[in-house]
Design a protein around this nucleic acid. Sequence first.
DNA 1: AATTAACCTG
DNA 2: CAGGTTAATT
Length: 635
Amino acid sequence: MNARHAVDPDLLECQGSQLVHGDPGESKSNVLRKLLKRANSYEEAMVPFPGTTIISQLLKSSMTKNGGGAGGAEPGFPGSALSSAGSEAAQEDACSSSSRDSPGQECPSPFARPAHFEAERLSDEHLRAKRARVENIIRGMSHSPCPEGHPLPHSPRDGYRENKRKQKVPQQQQSFRQLVSARKEQKAEERRQLKLQLEDMQKQLRQLQEKFFQVYDSTDSEGNDPDPDGGNLSEDSARSDADERPARDSGQLAETLKQELNSAMSQVVDMVVKVFAKPPRPLPQGFPPLPEPQDPFPTNGDNPNFHTTNQRLQCFGDVIIPGPHESFGGVPLPSANDQTEALPLVVRKPRSAVGAHGGHHHPSLHPSSLSANVGFSPPSFRQPFPLPLMGYPFQGPLGTPSLGYPGKDRGSPDSMDLSRETTSLRTKMASNHHLGHHRSCSPTHPGSTAEGLSLCLIKSEVRLLFLNPRHLHIQEGLSPNHLKKAKLMFFYTRYPSSNMLKMFFSDVKFNRCITSQLIKWFSNFREFYYIQMEKFARQAINDGVTGADEIAVARDCELFRALNMHYNKANDFEVPERFLEVAQITLREFFNAIVAGKDVDPSWKKAIYKVICKLDSEVPEVFKSPTCLQELLHE
DNA sequence: AATTAACCTG
DNA sequence: CAGGTTAATT
């Protein structure tokens, strides 16, 4: 009997990845709805187009209004009572729901009625006119000499009614025409209004953009400020200078940093190009929820620039925010202080962050490089980034932990920054896409059209992505991705030296805390490893295994499943064969020791450790790359 | 005194 | 997985 038979199958079972529940974002879509209502005075319940901007929404709605009206008016037939009733019911719903705010209000005006209802009414009139014409013809026939002498049964009353009808026909036709022309006028007026509003919004957007760029440029120069707290670069060089190092070292450091910055930039460019190339994918909801409830991190109140910059930057994003503390149509929006962008975890006690397995990187994003490095950065290093990120969910089609971080459902805010930002970008792409569909604006005049503006937004965000310090390589903390990498490295080395760790986590700025944290990680890994070994060894003994050579560790055995579940939970990494051998050796060591009764000695495991620590193999070079996760897991 | 690993606990 | 403790090592 071998180990795989010796295990209680109930001990371990595959855990499905946990469902991520995204908040429906009710309030946000309400905001949008109200906005849109106010904008075009239509009561029709508009399903917020997922991930579109207000402008694209407006455009879209006006388009459907203009085009959909004609198509929606189907010819009336006697048998259409059902559909008529259905649409009337729908109309009632729309009315009741829309007038809920002010009870007693009727549906404002025909102008504001849903197009399909209006069409229904028109077709009804049309039907009556038709019927009248037919009856008119019949009546004319009946007045002609009847050879059979069978006049149609006509009561005096019928004659009266017919006279009325006879008169009514032209009236109806006239009113129909009037209605149509009135409607045309109304539509034209509505279009004018929409256009005005759109232009107005474009103006606002332009102004806000200008504001933004002012702020942006100023913060940019602030970032280059030699103030040690100004940014990582200066902090780094300051530190190295103070480290009594030769001047050329800092020169080299600068060169290295420049190179890294360049590569980061080019990677971001690649990513952005990828994002652009991809067809827009609708987001799950029009206006995803803010992540504040999940955010366990305190707002950084230490950074003097935080709030001001934050507020100043508020003018930028998918939605034009009226002002720092204003609201949209009476619906309060999160203010600058509400923004809960993840704040840096102090390296000293980064428990929450390090414990999080929340690497939410969509495979399609693969910003490669970046996601592996998007970790937390120190307070001084961080730049508040409210709007472009605001309103994007932690999860979603782009943010789902599809790379498999099924572990804890705590998300690491930082690791998702990039996802969120690219989501933002993609959202803009989506809105651009819609604009392009409905309106053939020439993109050659960016800024002069809504599409151009949207492009501007995208470009701006690309710039932000480029210059966001968080996307640089060097970081001061360990991210969930680093943890994942460390776990995969455990398949090769159980006892990595500090130097080795520095080599393989070159994108992390090492200090005592980081080092000891990494060491602690591997210590924890070992702990789990040895506990499993002892457990399965005892199990084998209990199951009657007599010789160590009966024990084998294969990929389908329970022991391996347990280990794999722990270090490679997403199972997206091919565990090296050597690890199986080492595991088998370890298991046999435990087995033999226990069988020999050595476990009576409190330090009986030490001998085993001594053996196992010699079995480390070389970690592949890829692991030295900060982007190794992407390279390893998606080949 | 500092570092590290194992151990224990939450 | 992190915090804390202990013991061993340098």
